[in-house]
Simulated assay, not measured.
Amino acid sequence: MATSNFTPVTFCDICSNAFYFDVKVAITEVDVDTYMITDQYQNYKLLSHDDKFLLLNDERKFQAQLLNAKEQHQSDCRFNINIYKDSCQETQHRAVILSIVKDDKRMVACCSGNNEISAVEMELPHTIPETSHKALFYLKKLPAHNKFMFESSVYPSKFLGFEPDEDNPTLNKLVLRHKTSDEVDETAELTLMK
């Protein structure tokens, strides 16, 4: 005999109109969310709400700026969106890591303190055993054509977004922006372009 979750039980005896069973509890690992890399990835240019292109500058900082047609073809403004599969298959949104290759090094967009996003040199992890990781985001499709949001797996309700750079107001830097589910924040919306 087995219980509904397949724990084996054995009938022992009847005593005073009661049935007695011996339950054999096996100690097993508890299934937790694990993200595994897939072969699926897409290469995109990412645009902010004000049509600035996201790129990784020479100081290894993510920033958005206006680019002419020639500059848009540079490799430092084409990002890979690597897709990760959830072992439990219960999430509604796709888990992804955003990366770019610059100077033959893979740089990954990672959450850091104070709502900052930093470029961290790393190989893409094949498996992420936690439910959150500094480089893992949930890609959420918006109703508008090619518009998406990237929610941090470490900081729920915080999304990749832009704000003006204090040193150069013509540039926007990539940050984490807090947004509630019913709030509209165009600075946290990205357009993906092939």
Results as ranks from 00 to 15, higher is better:
P169R: 04
E29L: 01
F137T: 01
I27A: 00
G113P: 04
M122A: 06
T180W: 03
R106D: 03
G113L: 12
L56N: 12
A64W: 06
V175I: 06
N114R: 11
A95L: 03
E186K: 15
Q74E: 03
I97M: 14
R177G: 12
E186G: 12
V184E: 15
Y35M: 04
K173I: 13
T180H: 10
F21R: 03
H93D: 15
S181P: 12
F148L: 07
Q74M: 00
E29T: 05
G113S: 01
V32N: 14
N115H: 02
F159E: 13
R60L: 09
V120K: 13
Y84Q: 09
S153P: 04
N168S: 12
L174M: 00
D22R: 14
D167G: 05
K45M: 11
E29N: 05
A26V: 00
T38M: 04
Q63I: 07
D167S: 06
P169W: 00
N57K: 14
A188S: 15
T127N: 07
K140A: 01
V101N: 13
N114W: 08
K24P: 09
P129W: 02
F53I: 07
I14E: 05
H133M: 00
H178V: 07
H49G: 02
S112A: 11
V120F: 08
K105M: 00
P8M: 00
E183F: 00
E71L: 01
C15Q: 12
Y84S: 15
E123C: 03
C111E: 15
R78V: 06
I128A: 06
K141G: 05
T180L: 05
K147F: 02
E59H: 02
K194E: 11
F19Q: 08
A64P: 06
S16Q: 06
K179V: 15
M122V: 02
P169C: 00
E71Y: 04
L142D: 09
E29I: 01
L67Y: 00
N17D: 14
D50Y: 05
L176H: 14
L124K: 11
N168R: 10
D51W: 13
I128H: 11
S118I: 15
T191A: 06
H73D: 13
Y44F: 12
Q42C: 07
G161K: 11
A26Y: 03
V32Y: 11
V30H: 13
Q42S: 08
F53W: 10
T127F: 01
N17P: 01
D76M: 04
Y35R: 05
G161S: 09
L142R: 01
T91E: 13
F6S: 14
R106S: 01
E90D: 15
K52F: 04
V101I: 14
K179T: 13
I27R: 02
E121F: 00
Y44G: 02
L55V: 08
I37C: 06
F148M: 10
D104A: 09
L98F: 04
V25Q: 09
N43R: 15
S153M: 11
L136P: 06
T10V: 07
D103S: 09
Q65A: 02
D31S: 14
I37P: 03
V96P: 03
